[in-house]
Design a protein around this nucleic acid. Sequence first.
DNA 1: ACTCTCACCAGTGTATACAGAGAGTGAGGA
DNA 2: TCCTCACTCTCTGTATACACTGGTGAGAGT
Lengths: 219, 219
Amino acid sequence: MRASERAYAALRDDILEWRLAPGTVLAEVEQSERLGVSRTPLREALGRLTAEGLTAAAGGRGVVVTDISLEDIDELFELRETLEGKAAALAAQRGDAATFAQLQRELLHAPELVRGPHPALHEYYALVGRLDTAIDAAISNSYLAQAMRSLRVHLVRVRRLAADDAARLTAAAGEHAAIAEAIAAGNPKLAEAATIMHLHRSLSHVKATHVPHQKEHHG
Amino acid sequence: MRASERAYAALRDDILEWRLAPGTVLAEVEQSERLGVSRTPLREALGRLTAEGLTAAAGGRGVVVTDISLEDIDELFELRETLEGKAAALAAQRGDAATFAQLQRELLHAPELVRGPHPALHEYYALVGRLDTAIDAAISNSYLAQAMRSLRVHLVRVRRLAADDAARLTAAAGEHAAIAEAIAAGNPKLAEAATIMHLHRSLSHVKATHVPHQKEHHG
DNA sequence: ACTCTCACCAGTGTATACAGAGAGTGAGGA
DNA sequence: TCCTCACTCTCTGTATACACTGGTGAGAGT
């Protein structure tokens, strides 16, 4: 694998998992030594991260990890409602009913994954991810899909701010199932409404359980 | 100005003005010599262009200028309708009425700019650009604004495919004035409807006057 | 004549050296 | 005591040299 790709993936993970706190200055030499690559591929990685909005240029002083404020979360979900609402509606018009009917059935059994002594959270998130992928494929609009992908990067960070307990995941599975059902039924209005409902509840949950992230400067 | 910035601006302009036809392979050494910069800043420029979707990696064989098909235009306007419709609605809710009322008055006089022996097209496009900027500012949602900016880059390319005659520009000015009026009136539904109407007519115009671009390989 | 293989080459990916700019710090004066 | 100016130092921005990969063309074998 290319060195620039490794550096990008490593830094991206570090930021999304909050191992690199917002405000952290990413100096080129420091990071290139830490990741074992030279400055050239590291600069490429930083450029991609900056283009995605995970880092920002700090005026001659390298790049810093961007912050996510409560206003950012509101803005993020406002855009998300617009894009994913439209995407669900388009999927209902253009998607394959059998695919989404199958996803609905699986989602209805998803609560079993998050309950019990050994919650299979990985499988749960993979299932939800398959619904996202199915919608992306169904809309057959690469620009819209691209816009949603770039949005989801930031949402991964936000998700880490909330406490995803079993109760919330169970409820979310039901909401996802409702979206899949509406798409399978070919009902655009209903699919959009189900998506907006889900996003509002998700946002409420994030805001209710959100704990301000302490900035750790462990050096 | 930084060399990477100059290279980026030059290549971006060349692509948007169709001086670099879709499918053109941008070899690093060749372009770095043409633009008078070394390969390092040129690679950064190519990375930014690829992130924006104006170029695409060609599997170890450099990057190529991406193509814009008729399907792309449909997808582009589908996303545009979603984003700009929402933006207009938000601007109607949050924007300053006086600002948009003033823009409406100027837009109503815009036909004078495109008629006559000396059409002031530059002023016309600047005025329309000011409406876009005002909407961007009014929505106070950086993520939505960013999504629209990345979309408009591609629309500049599409605009070059259509023949922007005085008749179309006059009609477009009226449509823009209607959008500004609806925003000034604080009517979100109306602002969204006016935007969707404008975009549909704009798309129809592009499709009606579109001439397939001949690929020139002048070397 | 067709196909397979090997070698060469063009071009990207990476490392490193050098220059220039910006920020921080220290001292001196008001 | 605070403000300002200059110096220094570190870090970014750029150039260039080197390595490696992927592709293409020619030559030989079937």
